[in-house]
Design a protein around this nucleic acid. Structure first.
Lengths: 232, 232
DNA sequence: ACTCTAAGTTGCAGTTGCTGCAAATTGCCT
DNA sequence: AGGCAATTTGCAGCAACTGCAACTTAGAGT
């Protein structure tokens, strides 16, 4: 009667909401099961059972078993951040680029538990970490483009030919790939050490995995001091 | 009669030789089939058929279908090179490290055709390239150790505490990962462009894929000029 | 030359990830 | 209520991969 949802918007989200909900449920099931039994000892059917969906539906949601564990979030670059990156004051290219790439990290309103659990899984199963990094490489070209643009600032006054542009693009590509390596390094530091059993004290665990910002600044600092080494 | 192989050495190699021979035969079959039909349209049974072995034997030789395509060569670090790297004159850490890692490249007495074919496959199927890079990451720790040792040269005179060592190790790790990224960049440049059909002129093709040494020096040069950019 | 043993090969059956297809179900709109 | 379209599901099937037991071969001893 009065509570009939005449509002279209509410119902319009219903499908989408439900989808997102089950998706999350499946991810959680997958992650917890893998943490308990190990990747190889978890079958898709198990995950389905715990999530209350059929196997066929599972594969409607996720392309592969791995995908369900890693999560389906699309690591796309935010438009605003991109502009900010290009226009930013010019003395911190590397740190800025690293920050830009850190979009993998825990995002606004994300399930904290799920995130750290995944981190733990990455520590236990390098193959999955690999998969995650592969996703990163997919945005390589986007980032390269941004770095290219940023490198081009200030050069506008001078005459620039194709060779210059190509060279700068090469630089951008090189830098991007190198920074991707640094990002991997950062991620590795982030992963909790193997076989450190979850202590009774939750606070201790939270201390073990630093914030994104912390990791970032620490890595940047290390990078700075490393680049200043005389013998290259 | 007279040709009876009394010599033990000749026969002693027989087993090993045969193994290596069939291994190579399988790799060749796999590569050529994939080039012809694409990765997904090639079954293990096809490869077995063309290689004259049973499927079961196939999996005795290679852990996975992918492994057969990218080859089973263990990318381990040569002992001699390792020493040379540590003791080398100190102004070229990055180039030297990159050279060290280039062990992926075509090795002494390797099938040239097979190598370039694989390169082409990598261009067509990024997933396989990915697999190849994953192998690289497995030697990360070895290389890190070497870089660590090299960074430590000359510091012997001064007093060094644990913190210093840990810091240096961090630097080595960071550098290694970054260089791994650069290596990936180099490998990508190396891959022949997609859909450039094999021309009738073989020489043109050979010109398309530069030597390891060429790629290496070019990359090093680019790296140098990039690192000298003022804005980091 | 003959045999014996261990290494290597194969067939077979079974598990698991994953896909296409068509039927059943569900959600939403009129 | 009725109907349309999106989801979900069951089923059948393919391909990668594994364990096991039987078989074949190579190399060493006698």
């Amino acid at each position: 009667m009065t509570d009939t949802p005449t509002s279209t918007t509410m119902r319009a989200q219903s499908r989408e909401n439900k989808h997102h909900a089950t998706s999350l449920r499946v991810e959680r099931s997958a992650v917890s099961l893998v943490l308990e039994h190990g990747f190889d000892n978890v079958t898709v059917d198990m995950i389905c059972g715990q999530s209350g969906i059929s196997q066929r539906t599972f594969f409607n949601y996720f392309k592969t078993k791995k995908a369900a564990i890693i999560g389906a979030e699309p690591p796309t670059i935010d438009e605003g951040r991109a502009r900010a990156f290009i226009a930013a004051p010019g003395d911190d290219l590397l740190p800025d680029a690293l920050t830009l790439m850190s979009a993998i990290g825990p995002r606004e309103g994300m399930d904290e538990q799920l995130f750290t659990d995944r981190l733990r899984i990455f520590g236990l199963h390098p193959e999955l970490m690999q998969e995650q990094m592969e996703r990163m490489t997919r945005v390589t070209s986007e980032i390269t483009e941004l770095v290219y643009l940023r490198l081009g600032r200030g050069a506008v006054t001078e005459v620039e030919n194709d060779a210059d542009r190509a060279f700068r693009h090469g630089q951008a590509e090189l830098l991007t790939h190198a920074m991707l390596g640094v990002l991997r390094f950062m991620a590795l530091q982030w992963i909790p050490d193997f076989e450190r059993p979850v202590g009774a004290d939750g606070a201790a665990d939270r201390a073990a995995t630093p914030t994104l910002a912390e990791s970032l600044s620490r890595t940047v600092e290390l990078l700075r001091r490393t680049l200043s080494i005389p013998g290259l």
